[in-house]
């Protein structure tokens, strides 16, 4: 199985590579359209800012490459947000539009004042989703983010922090998670394994 991690101007893509190696998978890290298109599985990870990363994807023609992928593809963190319709980060940034959801900034309320949402939070998932198979109910995953995707028809898991938002999305061959499975211990490993087995 050929797994490609999309290389672009976002940080933290190596920790996904390390996590895959712990599962015995040697992934290719590449920003080359042909290599990405030829993969059996594509992972679109990263930590970064929406406008800067979208501009980079467009300049390098990766926006169309990603939109036209037909193999199982997993967006992680900013990867998930870029697969949504638009993001409030950096104005209103048009994103890849795989999912209809929009990405909004957390607005602190009276009881929760801390943003970013940082740490381990519970994820309530659709039990029939293959991405969440063999996991306990409401597992804890590790999050670091200040923006979140709204809840809609493609939502397969939610988390509550200030408001309820999409912890995971799924449409056709596209899967996406807001949390970091590569940093979420055993449950994160199981989720990555589930994705690799799709």
């Amino acid at each position: 199985m050929k797994v490609v991690i999309i290389k672009y101007n976002a940080g933290n893509i190596f920790s996904v590579d390390y996590a895959l190696r712990r599962l015995g998978v040697e992934a290719t890290i590449s920003g080359d359209a042909d290599i990405i298109k030829s993969a059996d599985k594509v992972i679109f990870p990263g930590v970064g800012e929406a406008e800067t990363t979208m501009n980079y994807l467009r300049e390098h023609g990766l926006d169309n490459v990603i939109k036209n992928l037909t193999q199982p593809t997993l967006g992680i963190c900013i990867g998930m947000q870029l697969l949504c319709k638009s993001s409030e980060e950096g104005g209103i940034v048009e994103c890849l539009g795989i999912f209809d959801e929009v990405v909004k900034k957390f607005v602190p309320n009276e009881s929760i004042i801390k943003v970013p949402h940082m740490g381990w939070n519970t994820v309530t998932a659709d039990p029939s989703s293959p991405l969440f198979k063999n996991l306990i109910n409401d597992p804890y995953f590790y999050y670091v983010h200040s923006y979140h995707a709204t809840v809609g028809k493609d939502t397969i898991a939610t988390t509550d922090y200030i408001n309820q938002y999409s912890a995971a999305l799924h449409k056709d061959n596209f899967y996406a998670v807001q949390f970091h499975p590569e940093k979420s211990g055993k449950v994160g490993e199981q989720l990555l394994k589930n994705f690799l087995e799709l």
């Binding site: 390390y18 712990r22 590790y142 970091h180 211990g185």
Partner: peptide, 8 residues
């Protein structure tokens, strides 16, 4: 550490 440990 990064290669071997799966928590932040």
């Amino acid at each position: 550490i990064a290669e071997n440990i799966s928590i932040p």
